[in-house]
């Protein structure tokens, strides 16, 4: 479950998708362990944590941060007529971050993914960008994301081009992307993503507002927060 860990208990064990997280309370520290099939993957001793928190994060941190872009390719193409509009959903992968908080300071102590991690080049080999890659589908109705692996992405597609267009993928920037999650649950979602198609091969991605009510906004890992370049929109220049 996402949200706060009850560190008043002597031992807390959480089973996510394939991994188990353990928090063992000692005199003045908490021993945190991440296990997969009973094999220890990571452990960390946290001195006097005020709060420990598990949250979904943009999937760009594993195995290390190579990019801040996420490329979602649809298994089903979406055709839109001139001036056509369509609302729907897709799914994107999430990384999971365990945060330690004290006063106003927070720090990610562990980052991992329960999802298969792959990257792809978006654009030509000389100028393209590396993006976290995920194959999903375009859904017309809301879809329950796979727990701890995916987040729901509400989409609004607008075709401003004067011809039919085929949308096969979307490129999102993690710097602008916000993730929201259900406390003590496993549901995660992004804000609404608006795709304005400007030609047969180009589109503009806008980052809207939260769609689902009652969700908490996830913290952004420090590495994402300190990125200098903060664009408001993402341009898809090399194919849609």
């Amino acid at each position: 479950m996402y949200g706060n860990i009850d560190i008043t208990k002597a031992r807390v064990q959480l089973k996510l998708a394939e991994r188990t997280l353990e928090f063992i309370k000692n005199a003045d520290y908490v021993m945190y362990r991440r296990l997969k099939d009973d094999n220890l993957e990571y452990e960390c001793m946290i001195k006097n944590p005020e709060t420990l928190l598990i949250e979904p994060a943009a999937p760009i941190l594993i195995p290390k941060q190579l990019t801040h872009y996420i490329l979602i390719e649809f298994a089903n193409d979406v055709m839109l007529p001139p001036e056509g509009e369509l609302e729907g959903y897709t799914l994107m992968p999430v990384d999971i971050v365990v945060f330690s908080l004290k006063d106003d300071n927070y720090r990610g102590i562990d980052t991992f993914s329960e999802c298969k991690v792959k990257y792809a080049l978006y654009g030509p080999k000389d100028e393209g960008i590396i993006a976290r890659y995920y194959k999903s589908r375009f859904f017309t109705n809301s879809k329950e994301p796979e727990a701890y692996k995916e987040a729901l992405v509400p989409l609004e597609i607008v075709n401003t081009h004067n011809d039919w267009v085929k949308l096969k993928r979307i490129l999102m920037d993690a710097v602008m992307l916000r993730l929201y999650y259900k406390q003590s649950g496993s549901f995660a979602s992004t804000q609404k993503i608006k795709i304005t198609i400007t030609s047969e091969t180009t589109a503009l991605i806008d980052y809207g507002k939260q769609v689902h009510g009652g969700l908490k906004e996830a913290k952004r890992p420090l590495r994402l927060s300190i990125l200098m370049h903060v664009p408001r929109k993402t341009e898809m220049m090399w194919g849609i």
Partner: peptide
Amino acid sequence: LDEHPLVLVQP
């Protein structure tokens, strides 16, 4: 190749 996270899907 598919299991290696740093082997790109595209190209």
